[in-house]
Write a protein that binds this DNA or RNA. Structure first.
Length: 491
RNA sequence: CGGGGCGUAGCGUAGCCCGGUUAUCGCGCCUGCUUUGGGAGCAGGAGGUCGCAAGUUCGAAUCUUGCCGCCCCGACCA
């Protein structure tokens, strides 16, 4: 009996939730707005972490860890940053509970244990980190500081969606300090490029690099670079951001250094981050109506092996053949799960590994052993083929590479098919309704952007870095514009 | 914080309007036999403070009142 998923086209949200749940990635926690990432989902996140971490180290960064709590006085130091996040902060006000005499067995907050100063649970760590950097920096010799932190942060969201928006989420946040403006800008741009490379090479997800408009800019940043991806329902997803912070935080926390020429100046800063939201992006970029589809480079295991047999004797024979193949694959660095459980039937396993997005499935039974063949099914195309037993390791290796490329190419094709240019407001509204990226002229003002948002629900996703200089008129106000920006409805 | 909806087994639900034996069905779970190349079949079984509290009544999942919790749509947002 087939227990299918809801179709993507029928109800995208439902489809998404079913994949997250049935592929065993995550679930809602009993804690409001919070998420439990289950082992299989976390294994994917760990692969992401590993690759990102490697790329950060290759670009000269080191990991460190800063406190979860930010004293309110530090949090409010950089005004724009504080104002931007104030509405969604969890705040610790007490440090002790006591027995509730009126309700035996229950606890209540001990009012005597009220904190002198409230502690904000970090929604982002600029404040606590810049307060720390203050003590680390005196001279140009102390610069640059290139630090990354893997951490959890809390943003008290009113409405949540697994991986895309939860009250607590996991991420990495890089925080760097530089002697010059140019160096800081180069750092922010470099990290955007690192994110781009990760998204495209590992996630198989094409992204557009760009700058945020003022209203979408990070609170406290001078400039926000971003990568934007297009999901299969035609909505945009901000996949990563890298901020040039100017001297805003250095001034707020009074972080100065003495330059080679003896002059005292504030340092220049960047911060950049990607979160478990990338998991949501990964799911929505490749998955289909049969479940998750994972790019080989991020799959917890690239190959699932399913033995087919009747009786214990056959089972042992088939499993021993598969074990040999497994060794050959592992020798090539391919990760394999041999599912020899007798508690589930082959058909059940086929469906299960499809739901979980395993790139390749190898099935083997007595027939194959006799013929010297192996059945290989690829997840991206759902194509099944028999390959010669002798050559299987090379074939699998080749297929995995092919799948990785194919997923990326398919995602690019999808994005191109769903990217359009609008030349007037009527056309714009129609295109936005249909979904996808819409390239259009904009007069550069926040007022117009807001008006368009109110009228169409579309926002400026970014001003693309490769924007062509092109004289035109704003689709909304008719004022002159130098180039097109990307509009879309967004997550 | 505004508008709407829902709370019945691990999950999804019927029953409620019009009160009446042992609370319905499906999935899942357990046992046994037969099965195993696309989510097996049959037989048996376990599992429930019907969100909580009070009230009306001979009798409440069902009616009344209060409370609690959750979901959806807005506003906010990576």
């Amino acid at each position: 009996m087939a227990k299918g998923l809801t179709s993507r086209k029928e109800d995208y949200s439902k489809w998404y939730n079913e994949i997250v749940e049935r592929a065993d990635l995550a679930e809602h926690s009993a804690v409001r707005g919070c998420m439990v990432i289950k082992p299989y989902g976390y294994a994917i996140w760990e692969k992401m972490q590993k690759e990102l971490d490697r790329m950060f180290k290759e670009t000269g960064h080191s990991n460190a860890y800063f406190p979860l709590f930010v004293p309110k006085s530090l949090f409010e130091a950089e005004e724009k940053n504080a104002e931007g996040f104030a509405k969604e902060c969890a705040v610790v006000t007490h440090y002790r509970l006591k027995n509730d005499e009126e309700n035996p067995g229950k606890l209540k907050v001990d009012e005597k244990a009220k904190l002198e100063e409230e502690l904000v649970v970090r929604p982002t760590s600029e404040a606590i980190i810049w307060n720390t950097y203050k003590g680390w920096i005196q001279s140009y010799r102390d610069l640059p500081i290139l630090v990354n932190q893997w951490a959890n942060v809390v943003r008290w969201e009113m409405r949540t969606r697994l991986f895309l928006r939860t009250a607590e989420f996991l991420w990495q946040e890089g925080h760097t300090a530089h002697a010059t403006k140019e160096e800081a800008i180069e750092e922010a741009e470099q990290m955007m490029r690192v994110y781009t490379e990760f998204a495209e090479k590992f996630m198989g997800m094409p992204v557009i690099q760009g700058l945020k408009s003022e209203s979408e800019r990070f609170a406290g940043a001078v400039e926000t670079y971003c990568i934007e991806a297009l999901m299969q329902d035609g909505k945009a997803l901000q996949a990563g951001t890298s901020h040039f912070l100017g001297q805003n935080f250095a001034k707020a926390f009074d972080v100065k250094y003495t330059a080679q020429d003896g002059k005292l100046d504030h340092v220049w800063a960047t911060s950049w981050g990607v979160s478990t939201r990338l998991m949501g992006a990964l799911i929505m970029t490749h998955s289909d109506d049969k479940g998750l589809v994972l790019p080989p480079r991020l799959a917890p295991f690239e190959v699932a092996m399913v033995p087919i047999y009747k009786g214990e004797e056959q089972r042992q024979e088939v499993v021993s053949h598969l074990s040999e193949i497994k060794k050959e694959l592992e020798a090539k660095g391919i990760s394999v799960k041999l599912d020899d459980r007798d508690t589930h039937k082959p058909g059940w396993k086929f469906a299960e590994y499809e739901l979980k997005g395993v790139p390749l499935r190898i099935a083997m039974g007595m027939r194959d052993i006799e013929k010297g063949s192996v059945e290989v099914a690829r997840r991206d195309t759902l194509e099944k083929k028999f390959y010669d037993r002798q050559d299987i390791a090379n074939k699998v290796d080749h297929l995995l590479e092919n799948i990785q490329d194919n997923l990326y190419r398919k995602a690019i094709d999808f994005r191109e098919e769903n990217s359009h240019t609008a030349n007037d407001y009527t056309e714009f509204k129609q295109l936005i309704k249909e979904g996808g990226f819409v390239y259009a002229h904009w007069d550069g003002t926040a007022e117009t952007e807001e008006k368009i948002k109110q009228e169409t629900k579309a926002t400026i996703r970014c001003i693309p870095l490769d924007q062509k200089q092109e004289a035109g008129k704003c689709i909304c106000s008719g004022e002159p514009s130098q180039g097109r920006v990307i509009f879309a409805k967004a997550y």
